[in-house]
Amino acid sequence: MYFDNAATSYPKPQVVKQAVIDFFNEENGSFQRTDTENSDFIFKTREKIARLLNVESPSNIVFTSNSTESLNMIIQGFLKKGNHVITTATEHNSVIRPLIRLRKEKMIKISWIECNRNGLIKPSDIMKNIRDNTTLIIVNHGSNVTGQVQDIEQIGNMLKKYGGKIKFLVDISQTAGHIKIDNSKIGADFLAFTGHKALLGLPGIGGFYINPEIDLTPLKVGGTGVLSELLEQPKAVPLRYESGTMNTIGILSLYHSIDYLNSLTLDKIESQLKQKTKYFIDRLSKLDNFEIYSLENPLGIVSFNVKGIVPSRISHFLLKDLNLKSRSGLHCAPFIHEFLHKNPFGCVRLSMSYDTTNDEIDTVCNYLERLNENVAVIQNIKLPKIYEMPSIRKVEDR
């Protein structure tokens, strides 16, 4: 059984797998570097993603290797010395680490917004922290730890009064492919996505939407296949941000996976995952040794700890006894755990997909109910403390 879809989705749709096989058998050449390759699907994939996010210009969909590269490109390409950034305790290390590095270079200041015990922030807290030199707000749309989804439409509407002075970056790594994202209502200047999670594409493909009025300093420069006579990077988007040979096979996977998602409809996916998480959480809530951090959510995530047991042991038991793949630890999002629990080892995360069956959920719940009855036998005598919990209070610029 596979309960680690928040890390990467499995299985991929049959139509995606077949398209990859056909590509290797029938195509050759390199995008924009040969006349023999049928590269039209690349622009068509931009169009599909633009419709999925409800943004106007497909040319402002930039392809990267994943959300990590997208977020680094935006953060490092946009921020300048003296800028102030507001972000949240729910962020992934793909946001935290670039910001911390820029901060250590004495370049920027950062304010971190706290969350509640389920990972939700108050949009009003963002507004309270805005300063004269605030240039960028960064918000993780859906927590990869708890599955809770932030009200980014409210945040976007609140920022309108600043007339575009403050830019808005939303990390949609967990939400794209799970729920509808309508940027005409959000007003985000950047939307960073990855392909291998709920978008059901291959690993190694991702991208971002960029407001056409914004120019970033590219993270890398080099060959674009066209305009080779220019000795500086072309200004036109997306060429400006897509140096080097593109991951055409990854883009092809999104071309087909988005069609598959549209055939299911995002409304149906969201509804199904809310039902599954609610059922799962309702059953676990009856277990007296379980501490649950998730509420009903459309991302399929249920996170918890069992009193007195290191979370990695729970994942080990699930793998050994049920052949179930899960995830334990801090999940590359260290700050959120400060507000969820006091366990320095993080938590257990079970993440479902649209294809997860009710029988699979019942099997896991039945197993965890038996584990709850035998906690005294398997508890650690004393939970070791090997390091301090990461804290936003230790890195915030006051």
Rank of each mutant, 00 (worst) to 15 (best):
Gly223Ile: 14
Gln233Trp: 11
Gly201Thr: 06
Tyr255Asn: 02
Ile96Phe: 12
Ala89Asn: 14
Leu231Thr: 14
Thr363Pro: 01
Glu360Val: 15
Ser124Val: 08
Asn38Leu: 12
Glu373Cys: 05
Asp321Asn: 15
Asn380Met: 15
Asn366Pro: 04
Leu227Val: 14
Val348Trp: 04
Lys160Tyr: 01
Trp112Cys: 00
Val364Met: 08
Asn28Met: 15
Phe23Cys: 09
Ile113Pro: 03
Glu396Cys: 07
Asp182Tyr: 10
Ile75Arg: 02
Ser124Ala: 14
Thr88Trp: 01
Gly195Asp: 00
Tyr293Met: 09
Leu284Gly: 04
Ile49Cys: 02
Leu71Ala: 05
Ile281Arg: 03
Thr248Ile: 14
Gln32Gly: 05
Glu291Cys: 05
Asp282Glu: 13
Asn118Arg: 03
Lys17Ile: 09
Leu102Pro: 02
Phe290Glu: 13
Val95Gly: 08
Lys128Gly: 06
Gly147His: 08
Ser391Lys: 06
Ile378Asn: 01
Leu318Gln: 00
Thr68Pro: 01
Gly156Glu: 12
Thr277Glu: 05
Lys320Phe: 08
Ser328Arg: 11
Lys197Trp: 04
Tyr293Ala: 00
Ser328Met: 06
Phe24Cys: 13
Val221Ala: 00
Asn247Gln: 10
Tyr387Trp: 15
Glu91Met: 11
Val15Arg: 05
Lys180Ile: 04
Pro13Thr: 04
Pro123Ile: 08
Lys197Phe: 07
Ala376Lys: 11
Leu169Met: 14
Ile130Pro: 00
Val221Phe: 08
Glu26Cys: 14
Thr64Gly: 02
Ser294Lys: 02
Tyr387Phe: 13
Leu52Val: 07
Val348Gly: 02
Pro13Trp: 00
Pro298Lys: 10
Ser143Gln: 04
Leu287Trp: 00
Glu56Tyr: 12
Glu360Lys: 06
Ile205Phe: 08
Ser111Thr: 11
Arg51Ile: 10
Met1Leu: 14
Lys185His: 08
Arg398Asp: 05
Phe31Leu: 12
Lys180Ser: 03
Leu371Gly: 09
Met158Gln: 12
Pro234Gln: 09
Thr68Ala: 14
Gly222Phe: 06
Ala198Cys: 00
Val237Arg: 15
Ala19Gln: 07
Leu299Asn: 06
Cys332Arg: 11
Val306Phe: 03
Leu200Ala: 01
Leu330Ala: 08
Ala236Arg: 12
Phe190Asp: 01
Thr45Tyr: 11
Arg313His: 12
Ser9Glu: 12
Phe78Met: 08
Asp182Pro: 06
Ser253Glu: 05
Cys365Thr: 02
Ile181Glu: 09
Lys109Ala: 02
Ser70Ala: 15
Ala50Val: 09
Pro390Ile: 00
Thr217Asp: 09
Gly204Thr: 15
Ile137Arg: 05
Met389Asn: 09
Asn297Lys: 07
Val375Tyr: 04
